[in-house]
Design a protein around this nucleic acid. Structure first.
Ligand SMILES: [Zn+2]
Ligand SMILES: [Zn+2]
Ligand SMILES: [Zn+2]
Ligand SMILES: [Zn+2]
Lengths: 143, 143
DNA sequence: TCTATAATTGATACAAAGTATCATTTATAA
DNA sequence: TTATAAATGATACTTTGTATCAATTATAGA
């Protein structure tokens, strides 16, 4: 998985440094939705001497390449999500903050429509549903 | 427009204070996608003595009520968007950062599906398409 | 293999964004 | 009008993100 990312980096002329290798590995193995500083912490458990700046810059680079995207999840910090095949989908409980990911989407026609209408070449999307999960709903019902 | 927001606040038992009135008015009249501190600045042009904290807290409240939502738009700060009828849609150029809003969406069936499958009661959504706008595309073609 | 080059790094310092606290003020209901 | 709890705003603080630059390192070419 991190090999995919690595390959894209080199293909686009970016260097595959030791630090980037560790960061990509960490990203793909640990769960997603990490903030930059959370990722830094995890990266440092594998390789102590990697600077915070390098993590920030690597995330920026991945975002520039369209491979990741910062999203907001309640706290002040940006959480970075992988844009697999260009898209990413969340279901977020407004009660407890739980974030569920889902894969299927049917937005291909929407891509087309939008592309034609606004002259955009659409490359991907983020879709987030907000609502109340089962647990929170039953808690609310109990009151 | 800000009356709608105000009505919801009072209906839910929140007080309609002078500060909140100004903040809601500013929000609905000035363009959207403001950061908290940008909004504070605009609010203070109308009523000097309103504290930054109050603006932050009011935005938090509106988010809790599902009326707004923070989204990331490049910079470090969260931009707050109104969730009219529960949803909000963007088209974002990855070249120049331009943000276009569009209204139509066809996600009602998707709401249904997701609700059934995950036991969520879906209340709204955010949809963001990423791509390259006409201008940026022609620039790229010129190289 | 060795060297020249530019990309990348990480330390440092800094700016911006968001949070916690608490005495004071104010909207609301009685 | 008054009692009450909600809301405010000043202050101080933590976290998150950005700028800078000398030192390091990956890569291409000799
Ligand atoms: Zn929940
Ligand atoms: Zn999708
Ligand atoms: Zn553009
Ligand atoms: Zn919609």
């Amino acid at each position: 998985m991190s090999d995919d990312l690595a390959r894209i980096l080199t293909a686009r002329g970016y260097r595959l440094t030791a630090a980037r290798r560790v960061i990509l590995d960490t990203l793909s193995e640990s769960g997603e939705h990490l903030t930059a500083d959370e990722l830094t912490e995890q990266v440092r458990q594998r390789s102590t001497a990697i600077g915070r700046m390098t993590v920030y810059r690597t995330l920026d680079l991945l975002c520039d390449l369209g491979l990741m995207r910062p999203v907001y999840q309640g706290t002040g910090a940006a959480h970075y999500v992988l844009m697999r095949d260009g898209h990413h989908h969340h279901l977020i409980c407004t009660g407890c903050g739980r974030v569920v990911e889902f894969d299927e989407c049917a937005l291909d026609e929407a891509h087309e429509k939008i592309a034609r209408r606004f002259g955009f070449e659409v490359e991907g999307h983020l879709l987030e549903f907000y609502g109340v999960c089962e647990v929170c709903r039953s808690k609310a019902a109990a009151n």
